[in-house]
Amino acid sequence: MKTENRFFPVLIAILFFSPSAFAQDADGAGATAITEDFSTETVGAPPQSFAPAVGNWLIGIDQGNKVLVVDGSKWRRGQTSAGLADKARALYGERYAEFLGNVKAYAYFPFAVFRRVDNFSNGTISMRFKSIAGRIDQGAGILFDLKPNGDYYALRANPLENNLVLWRFRHGKRSSVSWVRNVVTASRQWHDIALKVRGRHIEGYVNGKKYLEYELPAAVSGKTGIWTKADSVVFFDDYRVEH
């Protein structure tokens, strides 16, 4: 569906830092690369490297390798992730009520926020994904430009539809910005997805091939994360932000 979808008010906690497995290195002059491979996370527990906002997120195993799993088989419309209110209160203190009053998210679309990067405006975000199951959807996307009011963009691939779509989430509504067909990402196989950002200019890649190019109305500036939809069961690995 390319137009508005159902949404529900939920609470999200954005960026509360806790130790995790990050590999950080210089990536060219003035650039930094941060990679999360989940190798020091605890299997069966929620991730420490991401803040789950909507949906059920935990650390799993795929062929002996630790991965981040969104378990859409337990998804229920309108359900936020556990403990978000307490985390928001701990993060914002006296501004807790103000925060909750101004933030909206979308319970039809599970997502988790990357804790280490406070603000991403230029560079590359990439990750690997492996869609396992989902009757409604098997979407795997990069969330970016997440604002304090809950607005954001998501670049996502979908094995059920074989396409790549740039979605915009704004003021409680979802709309498609750019739509590319014939982008094949078979289920139960690992694929790469990457987003390159230079101010307002963005490019979308799947398995190393550029499929999408677009000029946004305003420059990117916000938090990043991982996005999916409804009952999707997807594995994620090697989440990397170069900026």
Rank of each mutant, 00 (worst) to 15 (best):
G60T: 10
L155C: 13
N65D: 08
I14F: 05
P47T: 01
A26I: 10
R188H: 08
L166P: 03
P46T: 12
Q79L: 13
H243A: 06
A51L: 14
V43P: 04
S221Y: 05
H171K: 02
H201C: 06
F114D: 00
A88T: 02
V241M: 07
V206L: 01
K196N: 13
K66A: 11
V183R: 00
F111L: 10
I12F: 06
G60I: 11
G172E: 11
Y92K: 14
A88V: 04
A51Y: 01
V206M: 15
F114G: 00
D62Q: 12
F7R: 00
G93A: 15
R128Y: 10
W57D: 14
T124K: 07
D137N: 06
F99T: 07
L164M: 03
K87E: 10
L164G: 02
A218E: 03
P110H: 08
G199I: 01
F235S: 10
V180K: 03
G141H: 09
Y211M: 07
K196G: 06
A219Q: 09
G93C: 05
T35A: 08
E242P: 12
L15W: 00
A45W: 02
A157T: 09
F129L: 01
F7N: 03
V184P: 05
V234S: 14
V70I: 07
R115K: 03
F129G: 09
S178C: 11
V184N: 07
Y92V: 01
N182I: 05
A97Y: 10
R170H: 15
P148N: 02
A51C: 06
R168W: 03
R181E: 13
Y211V: 06
P52G: 08
D237S: 14
V67L: 10
Y92R: 11
P159F: 01
P159H: 02
Y153N: 11
A112V: 07
N102W: 14
Y239D: 02
L58G: 11
D86R: 01
V67S: 12
H191L: 07
R181Y: 08
R200P: 13
V165N: 05
S73V: 12
S18Q: 15
D27K: 11
S49E: 15
K130H: 14
D37V: 08
F120T: 02
D145N: 12
A51N: 09
D231N: 11
R6F: 13
H191V: 04
